[in-house]
């Protein structure tokens, strides 16, 4: 089993390396020229050529890639082209904000989704099951910006319960953060809950057809115990991977929600910097997103391995 886990870890590192190549290529082929983007109107042919030389843009891409990778491995992501600040210090508070929002949404969404999924499975075919299915189908079908605007219109503007702008600053207290970020959190929860809930329900129900479930019924156990204790542990693997996928989405897919609520997160930063052509920041954002995604999926795989007694307990 240790082998499987190590194998998975190795694969994760390899994937991250491949992702770094793609990110580098992606920023290389961004339309427009970096030097002219920086100099903008003051550009003359001479100053452009000089800046290109300063930035090392005359060197082959492959060398610049390894320079960049070498730096990253030493914690040096370079400097922002826009303001010359260290990329890491530029990104860190933004990343913390994104992580805060993602964690906030995850802590609400994951237990909610699994709980609803299990309840729906226990009451399969009942009114509750159908209601939950219809509701989650609705939230999954509506685009998230639309959900966000609906929430702003009704909850923020009409009812006035929560602010429509989640413009937190480093000075905002924890409680206030929870308050300001409430609507973005709800939007994200509505978007991801459906997927996880439906997978929990489907996965548990597919296990419910197994002979050991019939055995549990014939032992006279309660339906709730059968679902939670006998079906759920054997349905975990697909649930874990869907949860991981959705958590990864929380971090890398929040761009739209951050933009709608003007929440100062990483996604918003990346969108801004792409338009400014600030390559080092974009690369660092991309790499962080990729690493998060890979890390979460790797964790999910390893958890799935651990949840299988055949792998945990050899013969």
């Amino acid at each position: 089993m240790l082998n499987l886990v190590l194998q998975r870890l190795g694969l994760g590192v390899l994937t991250l390396f491949a992702a770094s190549i793609l990110i580098f290529i992606g920023t290389e082929i961004l339309p427009g020229d970096l030097a002219s983007a920086i100099l903008q109107n003051s550009a003359t042919p001479e100053s452009l050529a000089k800046l290109r030389l300063d930035l090392g843009l005359d060197r082959p891409a492959i060398l610049r890639f390894f320079d960049w990778l070498f730096g990253v491995l030493h914690g040096d992501f370079g400097h922002s082209l826009a303001n010359g600040r260290d990329v890491l210090t530029e990104i860190a508070p933004r990343f913390a904000n994104t992580m805060f929002l993602a964690a906030y949404a995850a802590i609400v969404a994951v237990p909610l989704a699994i709980g609803l999924g299990l309840l729906a499975a226990i009451r399969q075919g009942g009114v509750f099951d159908r209601l939950v299915n219809v509701f989650t189908l609705m939230t999954i079908s509506v685009p998230e910006y639309f959900l966000a605007y609906l929430l702003i219109k009704y909850v923020a503007v009409d009812l006035g319960w929560f602010p429509s702008l989640a413009n937190v600053t480093p000075e905002t207290s924890f409680i206030d953060r929870l308050y300001y970020a409430f609507l973005p959190m709800v939007t994200l929860v509505l978007v991801i809950v459906a997927h996880m809930m439906r997978m929990t329900r489907a996965s548990v129900l597919s296990v419910m057809a197994s002979p050991y479930i019939e055995m549990a019924i014939l032992k006279g156990l309660r339906k709730s115990r059968i679902v939670v204790r006998h079906a759920l542990p054997n349905a975990l693997a697909p649930i874990i991977s869907v949860v991981a996928l959705n958590l990864a989405y929380l971090i890398v897919g929040v761009v739209i929600v951050e933009t709608v609520f003007v929440y100062p997160g990483l996604g918003q930063l990346m969108v801004d910097e792409v338009s400014k052509h600030d390559v080092p920041v974009v690369q660092a954002c991309g790499l962080i997103f990729a690493a998060t995604f890979i890390l979460l999926n790797m964790t999910a795989d390893i958890l799935a391995i651990l949840s299988n007694p055949r792998l945990r307990q050899p013969r």
Binding site: P211, Y212, K219, G220, L221
Partner: peptide, 18 residues
């Protein structure tokens, strides 16, 4: 079921929860 009437299935391998 269980305390009064109990069941023994054909395939124990499939009827035990893994």
């Amino acid at each position: 079921r269980g305390p009064k009437i109990a069941y023994i299935a054909q395939s124990a391998a499939a009827s035990f929860n893994p």
